[in-house]
């Protein structure tokens, strides 16, 4: 019993230590953000005169309103299309078992581990030739393609477990393939779809490489890319940079805290399957 109690205490201590290490960077950002702009505050020191106005200045300097709007537009472009197309393909490959489905699936699977840096160069010239550089479509279209392997993989994993009898009975009732998909399988797939949606949202929101290469205007980028631009422009003013970073973090953190259960579950399943 004594050992058990000691183990429990060690466990608690470890947890607290780990949480402290996790929180530390956020805390440091926050404290530094309150120092007068242009200074180099040493370590963790509470400022004598906290400059709450830094957040307002960063909000204006970063043009946060426009950034939020841009990120939302990009997410709205990427996530629904990816979900619809991924679900349809996953349904066809996993449930309808189309001819040649296995080969197609293998081709998709090969893309699962693709590092984006591998194709960023030709992607740049392709987007340029399409005349889409410096538009949000330059991020949206390639991301749909790049997320397709995972979306298909994820949805196939769901559909492959759906019993065929479900479809057999619907077919007997005269439903065609589209109705079968729309009326029976999509409603049943909602949990898988919403988890996929969360993952795609997060990956889109935090996409950096495509944003900095394909879009120069920070107000047409993702949040992450905008933060890169913000660092490029204000990196010389540490408190302002910290304030801006925190502001840019806030939306994801807020959404995470609201939907945290789903988030954690989705991310865990996501990495298990991916």
């Amino acid at each position: 019993m004594i050992t058990a109690r000691r183990e429990a205490w060690i466990g608690r201590l470890l947890l607290v230590a780990m949480m402290a290490v996790t929180i530390l960077p956020f805390l440091s950002l926050f404290v530094t953000a309150l120092h007068p702009s242009g200074t180099y505050p040493p370590g963790l020191a509470w400022p004598g005169d906290p400059q709450w106005g830094n957040f307002l200045r960063a909000f204006e300097a970063a043009n946060m309103g426009a950034l939020l709007q841009s990120s939302v537009l990009i997410v709205l472009g990427v996530v629904p299309i990816s979900i619809v197309l991924g679900t349809m393909a996953g349904f066809a490959i996993g449930h309808l078992r189309v001819i040649g489905g296995r080969v197609v699936f293998l081709v998709f699977v090969l893309g699962l581990t693709l590092p984006f840096e591998g194709i960023i160069t030709p992607l740049y010239y392709q987007i340029r030739d399409m005349g889409l550089l410096n538009t949000r479509l330059a991020i949206i279209l390639p991301l749909i393609g790049l997320f397709m392997p995972f979306s298909v993989f994820w949805m196939r994993a769901h559909f492959v477990n759906m019993p065929q009898e479900l479809s057999e009975s619907a077919r007997i009732d005269g439903a065609n393939v589209w109705q079968l998909f729309r009326r029976i399988h999509v409603p049943l797939a909602m949990p898988a779809i919403s988890s996929l949606g969360i993952l795609l949202f997060l990956w889109t929101w935090n996409q950096f490489l495509l944003a900095i290469v394909l879009v120069d205007d920070a107000t047409k980028r993702t949040m992450s890319g905008a933060l890169g631009a913000f660092q490029g422009q204000w990196g010389t003013d540490i408190p302002l940079l910290c304030a801006g970073s925190l502001l840019i973090l806030t939306p994801t953190l807020a959404i995470f805290l609201i939907f945290q259960r789903r988030f954690v579950a989705a991310l865990l399943q996501g990495s298990l399957k991916g």
Binding site: P25, S28, L29, W205, S224, L227, Q231, C242, S245, I248
Partner: peptide, 8 residues
């Protein structure tokens, strides 16, 4: 974003 982790 990893960018934020990098900055912090």
């Amino acid at each position: 974003p990893l960018v934020a982790a990098g900055i912090a």
